[in-house]
Measured scan of single mutants.
Amino acid sequence: HDVTIHAGDKTIHVHGASEEFLRIIEQAKRDGIHEEELLRLIEELVK
């Protein structure tokens, strides 16, 4: 999957995102996670 995530003034493109990655991001959004926290989460996941 190619994913584009908008968080605040940043746009992150993730190529080859796994289903698990997508679920984590969707869950985080539903939980109302702060955008900066979401960015950190994404950066950890894509290392």
Rank of each mutant, 00 (worst) to 15 (best):
I24G: 01
G16C: 02
F21K: 01
R23M: 09
G8A: 06
A28S: 06
V14M: 07
E44M: 12
L41W: 05
E19T: 10
L38H: 00
H6D: 07
L41P: 00
E19N: 09
S18A: 05
I24N: 02
K29V: 15
Q27S: 08
G8I: 02
A17I: 14
V14Y: 04
L39F: 14
Q27Y: 05
E19Q: 12
K29P: 00
L22A: 06
E37H: 08
A17S: 04
A17L: 15
H13T: 14
E43G: 08
E20L: 09
D2W: 15
D9H: 07
T4C: 08
I33K: 07
H15W: 07
E43K: 11
E36G: 11
H34D: 14
H6V: 14
E19S: 11
K29T: 10
E36H: 13
K47M: 13
L45T: 02
L38P: 00
A28H: 04
I24T: 08
T11K: 06
V3I: 15
E43P: 00
K47P: 06
T11A: 08
A28F: 14
G32T: 02
E43F: 15
A28M: 13
I33A: 11
E37F: 12
G16L: 07
E44A: 12
L45H: 08
T4N: 06
I33L: 13
R23W: 11
H6A: 09
E36T: 13
H34M: 14
I25G: 00
T4D: 07
Q27K: 12
I12M: 06
A28Q: 02
I24A: 11
R30P: 00
I24H: 04
L39A: 07
I24V: 09
H15N: 08
G16D: 10
A17V: 15
I42V: 12
V46D: 03
R40V: 05
E26H: 08
A7N: 06
L38Q: 00
E44G: 08
L38T: 01
H15D: 05
K29L: 15
I5M: 02
G32A: 04
I12N: 02
K47V: 11
L39S: 04
E37P: 04
I24P: 00
I24E: 03
H15C: 07
T4F: 04
I33W: 12
Q27N: 09
L39G: 02
Q27L: 12
E19H: 13
E36I: 13
E36F: 15
H6F: 03
L39Y: 14
K47S: 12
I25Y: 10
D2C: 15
K29M: 15
K29C: 09
F21S: 03
E37Y: 11
G16W: 10
E37A: 15
H13A: 05
V3M: 09
I42M: 05
H13S: 08
E44I: 11
I25D: 00
E44L: 13
H15V: 12
D9S: 10
V3C: 06
I42A: 03
G16I: 08
E35V: 14
L38K: 00
E26D: 09
Q27F: 05
L39T: 04
E26G: 05
H34S: 15
I42N: 00
V46C: 08
G16E: 06
I25M: 06
T4E: 11
A17W: 11
I42Q: 00
I33T: 06
H34A: 15
E35S: 14
L45E: 02
F21E: 02
I12G: 01
L39P: 00
L38W: 06
V14T: 02
A28V: 05
D9E: 10
G32N: 08
R30S: 11
L38Y: 03
I33R: 04
A17T: 05
S18K: 04
I42P: 00
H34C: 10
A28T: 01
K47H: 12
T11E: 10
L45D: 00
K29A: 10
D9I: 04
E35P: 15
E19Y: 10
H13W: 03
H15F: 07
S18H: 05
R23H: 07
L22F: 10
H34E: 14
H13N: 08
L41Y: 04
G8N: 05
D9Y: 01
E26A: 12
D2M: 15
H34Q: 14
E19F: 12
E36N: 12
K47W: 11
E26I: 08
H1P: 09
E20M: 10
V14H: 02
V3G: 03
K29S: 09
V14E: 01
K10D: 03
V3N: 04
K47D: 07
I24F: 09
E35K: 10
E43V: 12
E19V: 12
T11I: 14
I25S: 00
I5G: 03
D9N: 13
D31L: 12
E37M: 11
G16Y: 07
L39I: 13
H15K: 08
R40K: 13
K29Q: 15
L45I: 07
D2Q: 10
L22N: 04
R40T: 07
R30Y: 09
A28Y: 14
